[in-house]
Design a protein around this nucleic acid. Sequence first.
DNA 1: GGCGCTCCTTGATCTGAATCAAGCGGCCGG
DNA 2: CCGGCCGCTTGATTCAGATCAAGGAGCGCC
Lengths: 253, 253
Amino acid sequence: MPEAALRRSVAINVAHGNAAAHCADCEARHIGMCDALTDDEISFLARTAQRTTVAAGKVFIEEQEPAAYFYNISAGNVRVFKSLPDGRRHITGFMGVGQFLGLDVAGSYAFSAEAMGEVQLCRFHRKALHEVFGEFPALERRLLNIATHELTVAHDQMLLLGRKTAQERVASFLMTWAERNEHCPAGGVPKPGQKLPLPMTRIDLADYLGLTIETVSRSLSAMKRDGLIALDHAHEVLLLKPQRLADIAAGEA
Amino acid sequence: MPEAALRRSVAINVAHGNAAAHCADCEARHIGMCDALTDDEISFLARTAQRTTVAAGKVFIEEQEPAAYFYNISAGNVRVFKSLPDGRRHITGFMGVGQFLGLDVAGSYAFSAEAMGEVQLCRFHRKALHEVFGEFPALERRLLNIATHELTVAHDQMLLLGRKTAQERVASFLMTWAERNEHCPAGGVPKPGQKLPLPMTRIDLADYLGLTIETVSRSLSAMKRDGLIALDHAHEVLLLKPQRLADIAAGEA
DNA sequence: GGCGCTCCTTGATCTGAATCAAGCGGCCGG
DNA sequence: CCGGCCGCTTGATTCAGATCAAGGAGCGCC
């Protein structure tokens, strides 16, 4: 059993307990928000935190609900989305281990969040977290950096949704997803043949890219036909010509 | 001459001077970032600030350039945009008095910014501003609030770009623009007959809404035909049936 | 091991918005 | 006051992607 998986089981076993004694074991201890803090600071903060487990498919944050909590993801993936009254949906992001939920909030949540598989969360009362800011300015600074980075990502996605073709959107997604999964040498392009897991469904991809499932599927098939990717299983691509994909993603003429 | 216009002239006259003595007279003194600070704090901060004037049409922030400055808008409007290599453009936002430029930045600017008319800016060295954070935590907290709010706005816009029809996009824009221009009773709908100035061109609107100028024009004409708006001059609409517009904007079936 | 989901792919057709094209009108400079 | 230009509107046509439709493949469950 690999070490990471071992640590994950431990986290699952202590679910619902107080997190104070367990931050040291958390998958997210050295990522995201938590990485900004010293061990002393985090054990202080942990007194206000709770571990919870969320079953696959469960919507654990509902748009419009009063925003009582911040969440930090300890294990699993989450889809964050907004909906229109007639059921149209847009996924604003896929969030993974160490990522933070509950920033873009004013009183009520501005988004819904759903567990893609089973998910472990570390939950903080918003009020408690705000009280902690005074003690640990590093945390507030860290959150500003996170918010700032998310804003950049959001603006990139607006360019994608407003002005890119279907192929460009799918290529862009593959590149940012590869980067997110640390398959890229810092800021560069993944190596040819890089294997990339796609834990989300085609519906998720469509709702994230502003397309339909058929168009996503066709775009991927076209890339396969053109030798840019290989696609043996629906949830795994091989990036055969990553540089070409990066060029398409960037909208090179 | 109305008082606001008078104060604006004063600001123009002191352009390029040190801002220290002039924050008190600034249009933006009680909005956005500056509103978070006491008079003492702001005069401290102002030592590192410079007033500059930018001519209409001038691109004063270029995507990819090293991000040396933060800006606060003292007068005028700015279009913030991103471009693809073949010239496709997406406007991420229209920024006005008191608004803040330079948040979503990591080393280099992630966007370009262009003056829509003549613009007055208050400019801070990023480094200087960061040094000031230690002294005035209120400023950092304020910036986190601003970033958080911008993130909400960006996510709303992603829903618009990914899933709304042309009519819904235009209606959404009219509603948010009315709110921005304080024509709405807090969070509500503007009153019927409300006059709304549109300082931007149809190209701007198209690039902001992910449409073409023809489609923007047709959508507005359709709303006029249906009695939802009146449109005597191209740059001013009357909101005849604001509630109906709000429903369309929200995607009511 | 087979039944029946659910998810994915592929094909045929349709359509909302883009593109191509032609005026119109307000406004600035002469 | 006139001419030309730029930005806007409107009409005709095209097209990228949506919708409609029909299997196929993987997989959990019995």
